[in-house]
Design a protein around this nucleic acid. Structure first.
Length: 724
DNA sequence: CTGGGGATGGGGCCC
DNA sequence: CGGGCCCCATCCCCA
């Protein structure tokens, strides 16, 4: 093949004329270059762009894509993540296209069993992507065979691929900063257009596509396209992708011949060989799976195996992904892995399968998560903590396994398209159990066995879960939140009649209650397709995905900094405006962000209960506490008590802070400088201590301290309250 | 070296 | 589903 830009380069060199280099042309240089690039691609080395096609991810080099395809060129300029319309390009076709781009050879070279798309589909894709060389090649081959057929209806053979599928134009779902790239067709927010789904749709269909086992009609493609995988289906960009500079389709409706010489094609709708190279799971997970599928201990196994629901909200089918071994990693692959926080190390650590990891994640991908139980150190960072906190949040019953008690994918983020040729026979590996199979069909059959097991398991579990929920047996999940449920029949119930069966929280509408109830689910229904982390809300998962993909749609006009969330931008803008609306009532310090004020307050709190009280008062503007000048006196013991009460209430929201709350309440009595008032406050203080669920001992302590105070020789001033 | 503040990232969750 | 807010954690800078 030729690279147009390389040609230009060469020509310009010629124009420059009499350079020494003219006479030093190295034959085969371009070929060697291509070989190197392709080798690097297969290893993920220096890949700086991900192309998402349906449920397949490909990694490549922007420069190469830009040099080969005018269409891709227009996309890679702005983004590290391209989302191709799989109406136009199926994963299998794109794989061939990518092969061609990197090798100059068509026909795919017999990669993988079956599933080679039709020549017509390749031609259509090449046209769509504006790869003239490939278009010409396809045409040439088609001419040679001299057969034509209509593409419409998906036509021929095993194809079932309708390249233009009645769509108005190429609509690349462009997941980057969409505002930079006009896409006439507009965004297609697949899940939004989606039926309902519960979580299951996004997840299960994802799996269904991955494991589609039989040829399907073109309509199947449309159906599956509507239920795209979470990754390609989600509009991860915040703003609506305005669209790409979608080129006019160079190939208008036209007849395309079938592919007489091609092997029976499964067609894109039955894409069987996802180019995902999913490295094996972290060791702990795999160990979990190596055992015979046990009853999930985290879901209560006592339920009866009820009828299997049509889909599981937890996306267990995502469990089974295919993994193809890639050629052994080059040394630089390893280096890369280490340099990038060692994603490949993580993969290697689980032993034997180091070759699977194709190196680090592409640009734009966050480092892989720290899996619970992984070999990461304790200080590994946020993700690990997230898992921890997540489990804490959802109750101790959930872990130590990965969320949900089962590994759901947890695909290693460095997905890539690999080359199976250089591997042994068992290229298709079942991630949960690690067994290898020589063909996708065999793996498919194997996976089905897993699925049946899982379905039976989850049928029981769900029943148990529902029963537990109905019985109000849920653990005390989460912190904070609405505690206004009130007694049955009370005002709280009138205002918020929808009460959670698992906790006492209540809500104004059933939708919010449903949303809340998901926080009690032991299995979170929305898994991240990149790292496998699961979420209770789709929006949270989407937001999380944006962080993986580096999508920051909210830009600061002043400095250009970008954010994943509008709220962050709002916060950030205060830096430029100098606005500091949050003021510490203890020391007068001003802050642009409320959270920093809160953090600051904690610093005050460290100094003692008074600090805490004052700090909280600072937040709430309560009376009876010093003003910003710090010289105030506690003129209102009731105010101090109110402050203490609020502070203690805040602290008591968390189990671990109950002691601090108690301490605060006890110490509060010291600041009731009028012994008489102090005495009057003792009872409510002690009562509140008890209300908070603090120990009776602590309540007694409050009383005794207060009594001691009241009996003391001098009333106490609040000098201690003033900043030092 | 340490503590505090500024700033940011990510997750939970309610509206 | 997005917005908004809360929380926690982290990094960086500076005194």
């Amino acid at each position: 093949m030729t690279f147009p830009e390389a040609d230009i380069l060469l020509k310009s060199g010629e124009c420059a004329g009499q350079t020494m280099l003219d006479t030093m042309e190295a034959p085969g240089h371009s070929r060697q270059l291509l070989l190197q690039l392709n080798s690097q691609r297969t290893k993920g080395f220096l890949c700086d762009v991900i192309i998402v096609v349906q449920n397949a991810l490909f990694r490549a080099h922007k420069n190469v894509l830009a040099a080969s395809s005018a269409y891709l060129k227009s996309l890679v300029v702005h983004d590290n993540l391209l989302n191709l319309d799989h109406d136009m390009v199926s994963p299998a076709v794109f794989r061939l296209v990518l092969d061609f781009i990197y090798t100059g050879r068509g026909g795919g070279g017999g990669r993988g069993p079956g599933a080679e798309p039709s020549l017509g589909a390749v031609l259509a894709a090449a046209s769509y992507l504006q790869i003239p060389d490939l278009v010409a090649l396809c045409k040439k081959r088609l001419k040679r065979h001299g057969k034509y057929c209509h593409l419409r209806g998906g036509g021929g053979g095993g194809g079932g691929y309708a390249p233009y599928g009645g769509r108005a134009g190429p609509a690349c779902r462009h997941a980057g900063h969409p505002d930079l790239l006009p896409v006439p067709a507009g965004p297609r927010r697949l899940p939004a257009a989606e039926p309902p789904p519960g979580p299951e749709a996004a997840v299960n269909t994802h799996c269904a596509e991955l494991y589609a086992s039989g040829p399907g009609p073109a309509a199947a493609l449309c159906a599956s396209e509507r239920r795209c995988s979470p990754l390609c289906g989600l509009d991860l960009s915040k703003k609506s992708p305005p669209g790409s500079a979608a080129p006019e389709r160079p190939l208008a409706e036209r007849e395309l011949p079938p592919r007489p010489d091609s092997p029976p094609s499964a067609g894109p709708a039955v894409y069987k060989e996802p180019p995902l190279v999913l490295p094996p799971l972290p060791l702990p997970f795999q160990k979990l799976e190596e055992a015979a599928p046990p009853p999930d201990p985290f879901r209560g196994g006592s339920g009866s195996p009820g009828p299997e629901p049509p889909g599981r909200p937890d996306g267990t089918s995502l469990l089974y992904r295919w993994m193809k071994h890639e050629p052994g990693l080059g040394s630089y692959g390893d280096e890369l892995g280490r340099e990038r926080g060692s994603p490949s190390e993580r993969c290697e650590e689980r032993g034997g399968d180091a070759a699977v990891s194709p190196g680090g994640p592409p640009l734009g991908l966050a480092p892989p998560p720290r899996y619970p139980g992984s070999l990461d150190g304790p200080g590994a960072g946020g993700d690990g903590d997230d898992y921890k906190s997540s489990s804490e949040e959802t109750g101790s019953s959930e872990d130590p396994s990965p969320p949900g008690g089962h590994l759901e994918g947890y695909p290693c983020p460095h997905l890539a398209y690999g080359e199976p040729e250089s591997f042994g026979d068992n290229l298709y590996v079942c991630i949960p159990c690690g067994k290898g199979f020589p063909s996708s069909e065999q793996l498919n059959a194997h996976v089905e066995a897993h699925v049946e097991e899982e379905e039976a398991l989850y049928g029981r579990a769900e029943a148990a879960e529902v029963a537990a929920g109905a019985a109000g047996l849920g653990p005390p999940f989460g912190g904070g939140g609405d505690k206004v449920a009130g007694a049955p029949g009370g005002l709280g119930e009138l205002l918020r009649p929808y009460r959670c069966a698992s906790c006492d929280k209540s809500y104004k509408d059933p939708a919010t209650l449903r949303q809340h109830e998901k926080t009690h689910w032991l299995t979170r229904p929305y898994p991240c397709t990149i790292c496998g982390k699961k979420f209770t809300q789709r929006g949270t998962m989407t937001r999380h995905m944006r962080s993986h993909l580096g999508l920051k749609p909210f830009a600061c006009d002043a400095c250009g900094m970008r954010f994943t969330r509008q709220y962050r931008l709002t916060e950030h803008m205060r830096i430029h405006s100098g606005e500091k609306p949050y003021e510490c009532q203890v020391c007068g310090g001003k802050f642009a962000q409320q959270r920093n004020l809160i953090s600051h307050m904690k610093m005050h709190a460290v100094g003692g209960a008074a600090g805490a009280a004052g700090a909280l008062a600072g937040l709430g503007g309560l009376p009876g506490v010093p003003g910003p000048d710090g010289k105030g006196k506690l003129d209102f013991p009731e105010g101090v008590f109110a402050v203490a009460r609020l502070t203690a209430e805040q602290l008591s929201l968390k189990q671990q802070d109950k002691a601090a709350a108690a301490e605060l309440l006890a110490q509060t009595t010291h600041f009731l400088h009028d012994p008489k008032v102090a005495l009057e406050s003792l009872y409510p203080l002690a009562k509140f201590t008890a209300e908070l669920g603090l120990s009776p001992d602590k309540a007694a302590e409050v009383l005794s301290q207060g009594a001691h105070l009241a009996a003391g020789p001098d009333g106490r001033t609040i000098d201690r309250f003033s900043p030092t």
